[in-house]
Design a protein around this nucleic acid. Structure first.
Length: 437
RNA sequence: GGACGGGUGGGUGAGCGGUUAAUACCACCAGACUGUAAAUCUGGCGCCCGGAAGGGCUACGGGGGUUCGAAUCCCUCCCCGUCCA
C-alpha cells in the first residue's frame, strides 16, 4: 500500500489527542524523556512485537499495527517483530499459562500469514522507510546460555528485576524462572534491533512498559546509547470488558477465520460510549472529522454514525473495498428484515461468509427433519437440549419466521427454491443449511 | 528431604457422607424494551431420551478403597503454594 508521508505536526501530538499514550494514575505519560524531541528532530526506527502463535493477527494486535502505520506515515521506519523466540516462553505479565511450543514449520507458516496481513497496513516497499518484519528466533535460538549470561544477565541486578510490576504481581502465586527471564530476552531483542537497524524506540501496550524499559536500560548499559519507550493504553470497553473478544473468541484479521461481514459487525456493535474513542484509536480520520461524528453521536445516537463509520473504515483497511462491499450487502439483507424475498442464489451470495451445513435431500423427504435437530446439526446450538431450550424461548427463526416448536418438521417445501434454509439464532447469528442432491 | 495449606463447572469461590448436576457472584446465551447500543427486567446455562411428568449417563486433580450411598472419609500418586533444610 501507499504510505503518504506526513511531515507537518508532531506525531506525539497526534498520539496525545488520539489517547494513544498511556497515562498512569499519577497523571504521568508513559514515554521516555527526550522521545518527543527526538521524533520531531529526526526519522526514527521503531518496533512493536507480535505474538506469532497463530497464522493470523487479531484485533487485539490492531492498535499496535495502527501505531506502526502512523509512525510510517510520519516518515519513521516501522519494524514488526514476531517473537518466534520469546513467544515460546510467555510473558509473566499476561496469561500465566505456558504457551505451546511451535515447530519451526508452524512458525514459518505463521510468520507468512502475519506478514501478509501487515502488508495491508504497512508499506514494505517504501523507498526511504520500508517496513520490516523480523523473527527474533533468528538471533535468540543461536545464542548460547553462556553468551546470554555474559552479554545480557550481567547488566541486570536481581533487585531491578524483582522491582518490575510484571514480576511483583506474580510473586504471590509464584513465577517460573523462565517467565522471570522473559524481560531479559525482550531487552536483548531491543538491543539487537538497535545494533542491526539503529532501532531506537520500542512501543507496546502499557503492560509492556517494564519489559521495554529493561531494553532501554540494557542499551544504555551495554552500548552507552539512548533508546526510548512509549506505551499505549490497554484497550477496554466502557463496561470494562477486555476488548477484542466475542462469544466466538478472538476477532481475527484473516477473512477465513473471521469473515468481513462478522468483522464489520463487530465494530458496528460498539457501544456509544466506546465508538468515538475507537475512531481515534483505529482509524486515520482527522481530529476534526472525529469531533464532527462525536457531535452526531451526542445529538442523535440512534443513527449510530460513529459505529457505521468505524466499522466501514476498519473493514476497508483490513479487507479492502470489496470486503467492505460484501459486508455492507450482507448487513443490508440480514438486518433489513426479511430474507424471504430472495432467491437461493442471492442468499448464497449474501451468505457466502456465513457458516453453512449441508444435508442430503433425503433427510428432508417424508417426515422431514426436526427443527431442534436441524439447529443442533447446524451448530447454532451445541447440543440438542440447548437447541430445544433456545427454540422454546423464541430465540430461533427459520427463513426469518420465528418458530417456537422444537419438534416442528422441516421439509423440502421450507427451503428457498428447494435448496437453502436460513436459520438465525438471536439477533445476529446466522447459519445456512444447504440441501444436496 | 521435612512441616503445613490447597487442587470443585469458562472465572472467583461455597459445600465437607444422602435433601448436590453441585450455593453465590461474574462471564456467557435467549426473550422483553430499543437504535443490531447501554442500562434494566425475565428466563436459561453438563450430555442423552421423552410431548410432558420423568428417566438415564457423565462430572468436583489421577488411581484405588470404605459405605446401602462419597465432591465430602481412608490410601496412594500427580500438581500448586507457604515455611524449614
Amino acid at each position: 500500500m501507499q504510505a503518504p508521508v506526513q511531515t507537518t505536526g508532531s506525531i506525539i501530538d497526534e498520539f496525545r489527542w488520539r489517547g494513544l499514550i498511556h497515562v498512569t494514575e499519577g497523571g504521568e505519560e508513559l514515554l521516555t524523556p527526550g522521545l518527543e524531541e527526538l521524533l520531531a528532530r529526526e526519522k526514527v526506527t521503531a518496533y512493536i512485537g507480535f505474538d506469532p502463535s497463530a497464522d493470523s493477527l487479531h484485533i487485539g494486535n490492531l492498535l499496535g499495527i495502527m501505531t506502526l502505520m502512523r509512525m510510517q506515515r510520519y516518515g519513521h521506519r516501522p519494524i514488526a517483530i514476531a517473537g518466534g523466540g520469546t513467544g515460546l516462553i510467555g510473558d509473566p505479565g499476561g496469561k500465566s499459562q505456558e504457551r505451546p511450543l511451535l515447530t519451526r514449520e508452524e512458525l514459518q507458516e505463521n510468520l507468512r500469514g502475519i506478514g501478509a496481513q501487515l502488508e495491508r497496513f504497512l508499506d514494505f516497499g517504501a523507498r526511504d522507510n520500508p517496513a520490516l518484519l523480523v523473527n527474533n528466533a533468528d538471533w535468540l535460538e543461536r545464542m548460547s546460555a553462556i553468551d546470554f549470561m555474559r552479554d545480557v544477565g550481567k547488566h541486570f541486578s536481581i533487585n531491578y528485576m524483582l522491582a518490575k510490576e510484571s514480576v511483583q504481581s506474580r510473586m504471590e502465586d509464584g513465577i517460573s524462572y523462565t517467565e522471570f527471564s522473559y524481560m531479559l530476552l525482550q531487552a536483548y531483542d531491543f538491543m539487537t534491533l538497535y545494533d542491526r537497524y539503529g532501532c531506537a524506540l520500542q512501543m507496546g501496550g502499557s503492560d509492556q512498559w517494564g519489559n521495554i524499559t529493561a531494553g532501554v536500560d540494557l542499551i544504555r548499559r551495554a552500548r552507552g546509547a539512548h533508546a526510548h519507550a512509549l506505551v499505549t493504553p490497554l484497550v477496554t470497553t466502557a463496561s470494562g470488558a477486555k476488548f477484542g473478544k466475542t462469544e466466538a473468541g478472538a476477532v481475527w484479521l484473516d477473512a477465513g477465520k473471521t469473515s468481513p461481514f462478522q468483522f464489520y459487525q463487530f465494530w458496528l456493535n460498539s457501544a456509544d460510549a466506546d465508538a468515538v474513542q475507537m475512531l481515534r484509536y483505529y482509524t486515520l480520520l482527522t481530529s476534526d472529522e472525529i469531533d464532527e461524528i462525536g457531535e452526531s453521536v451526542a445529538s442523535s445516537p440512534e443513527r449510530r454514525e460513529a459505529q457505521r463509520r468505524l466499522a466501514a473504515e476498519v473493514t476497508r483497511m483490513t479487507h479492502g473495498e470489496s470486503g467492505l462491499r460484501n459486508a455492507l450487502a450482507a448487513t443490508d439483507v440480514l438486518f433489513g428484515g426479511d430474507v424471504s424475498g430472495l432467491s437461493a442464489d442471492e442468499l448464497l451470495d449474501v451468505f457466502q461468509d456465513v457458516p453453512s451445513t449441508y444435508l442430503p435431500r433425503e433427510r428432508f423427504e417424508g417426515e422431514g427433519v426436526r427443527l431442534q435437530d436441524l439447529v443442533a446439526l447446524s451448530e447454532l446450538a451445541s447440543s440438542r437440549g440447548e437447541a430445544r431450550r433456545l427454540i422454546e424461548g423464541g430465540g430461533v427463526t427459520l427463513n426469518s419466521q420465528r418458530v417456537s416448536d422444537p419438534r416442528r418438521a422441516v421439509r423440502l417445501e421450507n427451503a428457498v427454491d428447494g435448496r437453502v434454509i436460513v436459520l438465525r439464532r438471536g439477533a445476529r447469528q446466522y447459519r445456512l443449511v444447504g440441501i444436496q442432491g
